[in-house]
C-alpha cells in the first residue's frame, strides 16, 4: 500500500508517493535526485548515507521513507550558499580529507550535526561523532584535522 508523504529536504518541500519498504535513502536518491547520500552497506555500519533528520545525524538506509513524514532533512547539497562552500567543505578540501570521496558527504553531515550542537569539540568528541562513518582511504587524520579547522573558521565567522 503506497503512502503519500510530505517532507522538507534542504529547505524545499516535497510530496512524494512511497512504498512502505522504501528507505529514506532510496527516496532521496531515486525520487528526489538528491544523490550526495551514498548507498554503502545498507546496514547502518558504514555511514555513507548519513543525513541530518530533524537536527540529528541518522543513517538514511535505516529510516523508512514513510517514517520521514513532516521531517526536515539536510544533505550536503544544502551546505554551500551564494556560490561559497561551507567551511566544512572547504576544510575537507584544504586538509586533503577527500580521496575517493565516497564517504565524504556522510562524513560532512556527521561533522555538521556535531558542530551544530557543539561548536568547539575536542579531538575525542570529533572521533566519537564520526565513529559510524567509515573511510577506507585517508586514515581519518586529515578528516579530524578538517573538522577541527572548520570549527575554528566557523567560530571566527560567527564572532
Amino acid at each position: 500500500m503506497k503512502h503519500t508523504i510530505t517532507l522538507n529536504v534542504n529547505g524545499q518541500k516535497y510530496t512524494v508517493d512511497v512504498e512502505p519498504q522504501e528507505k529514506l535513502l532510496d527516496v532521496l536518491r531515486d525520487k528526489l535526485d538528491i544523490t550526495s547520500p551514498k548507498k554503502g552497506c545498507e546496514m547502518g555500519e558504514c555511514g555513507a548515507c548519513t543525513v541530518i533528520m530533524n537536527g540529528k545525524a541518522v543513517n538514511s538506509c535505516l529510516v523508512l521513507a514513510v517514517e520521514s513524514q513532516d521531517a526536515v532533512i539536510t544533505t550536503v547539497e544544502a551546505l554551500h550558499a551564494d556560490g561559497k562552500l561551507h567551511p566544512l567543505q572547504q576544510a575537507f578540501i584544504d586538509a586533503g580529507a577527500v580521496q575517493c570521496g565516497f564517504c565524504t558527504p556522510g562524513m560532512i553531515m556527521s561533522a555538521k550535526a556535531l558542530l551544530d550542537t557543539n561548536p568547539t569539540p575536542t579531538e575525542m568528541e570529533i572521533k566519537e561523532a564520526i565513529a559510524g562513518n567509515f573511510c577506507r582511504c585517508t586514515g581519518y587524520k586529515p578528516i579530524v584535522d578538517a573538522i577541527q579547522s572548520a570549527a575554528a573558521v566557523m567560530k571566527k565567522e560567527g564572532a
Partner: peptide, 9 residues
Amino acid sequence: FGCYDVRNR
C-alpha cells in the same frame, strides 16, 4: 551503544 547515527534512532 552503536555510534552517533545509530544512537539517534
